Computed example of a mutant assay.
Amino acid sequence: MGEARAYAALIGGQFRSLMSYRLSFTLEMLSNIGTTALDIVAVVVLFSTTRSVSGFTLTEALLIVSLSSLGFALADVVVGNVDHLRVYVRTGLLDVVLVRPLGTLGQLLSMDLPFRKALRGLLSLVVLVVAVRLNDIDWTPGRVVVLIVTPIAGLVFFGAIFVLTASLAFWWVDSGEIGASFTYGGRDFTSYPMPVFAGWFRAVFAYALGFAFVSYQPALVLLGRDDPLGLPTWAGYLSPVVALVAAAVAAVVWRAGVRQYRSTGS
């Protein structure tokens, strides 16, 4: 209970600090919508020259990209600032965090929550609602659960990717570009139907690393479509399982990194 109050105090203090410059905060929030908007516009532009891509229509693609964008936007707000770990390691700020009687990861996430990115999630939610209405979905209890759970699983999955890639800084401080290729690159990858990709690239990123279960496989369940790639229908229900496995792997790597950390310059 005491830890919860401490984290709440950290987050509250940060929010009050942001509210001291309300105009700047509002402008930052509005400008941050652009990233999510561009993801959606890119899909619309792709379909502007053709009626279908790999057998998927624009409305079906909008469902996929909105599920992906909402999960990523939520993860970016809650966990995204862990990307700054390499800065904390380089400057020695992590040393200060480690001597406090609170969890290391919890402190890092509470120190600089990117509230300015919150509208990304709202935009993604609006697009998801529109996509659901545009597609002729035969609603069943199972599909309702999939619609609710998929963005939460996306939050956990992308959050795990953020933590996992940030943890590389414990061994390699200048690992930022590699991390971004999996976090932001993963967001871009999951915005499209998997048949768009081919060969080893799809096999590795979609299924070996689990990105196909962020939005593509659940979208197939919602749409009542068979998977063109041959996976069974129940694969669309695996998003929470894949997300929890990713979170477990990220937790193991994070703990290993914290244990081996030997202060600035290590």
Score class of each variant (00 low, 15 high):
1 M>N: 14
93 L>P: 00
87 V>A: 06
169 A>K: 00
106 G>H: 04
70 L>P: 12
256 A>V: 04
94 L>M: 07
179 G>E: 03
180 A>Y: 04
137 I>H: 09
107 Q>K: 06
56 F>Q: 04
239 S>L: 11
115 F>Y: 15
250 A>M: 01
141 P>W: 06
144 V>Q: 07
251 A>H: 04
193 P>M: 03
247 A>M: 11
223 L>G: 04
115 F>G: 05
147 L>E: 06
107 Q>V: 09
146 V>Y: 04
165 T>N: 03
248 A>V: 04
111 M>D: 08
195 P>Y: 07
210 G>C: 07
104 T>F: 03
243 A>P: 07
77 V>P: 10
45 V>L: 15
113 L>W: 01
48 S>H: 13
18 L>Q: 14
45 V>W: 12
203 A>K: 14
250 A>S: 09
46 L>T: 14
200 W>Y: 10
85 L>V: 07
209 L>K: 08
97 V>K: 00
146 V>M: 07
214 V>A: 07
49 T>W: 09
90 R>E: 15
105 L>Q: 11
251 A>R: 05
36 T>R: 03
27 L>S: 10
82 V>R: 02
59 T>C: 05
87 V>W: 06
197 F>E: 03
129 V>P: 07
51 R>P: 15
93 L>T: 07
3 E>C: 02
129 V>S: 14
110 S>Q: 03
189 F>N: 03
142 G>E: 13
264 T>C: 00
222 L>M: 11
78 V>C: 08
95 D>A: 02
108 L>K: 02
175 S>L: 02
255 R>E: 14
233 T>R: 15
185 G>P: 02
107 Q>P: 03
114 P>H: 09
234 W>C: 08
72 F>D: 12
264 T>R: 13
84 H>I: 06
28 E>W: 12
263 S>T: 09
210 G>R: 04
135 N>F: 12
159 G>V: 07
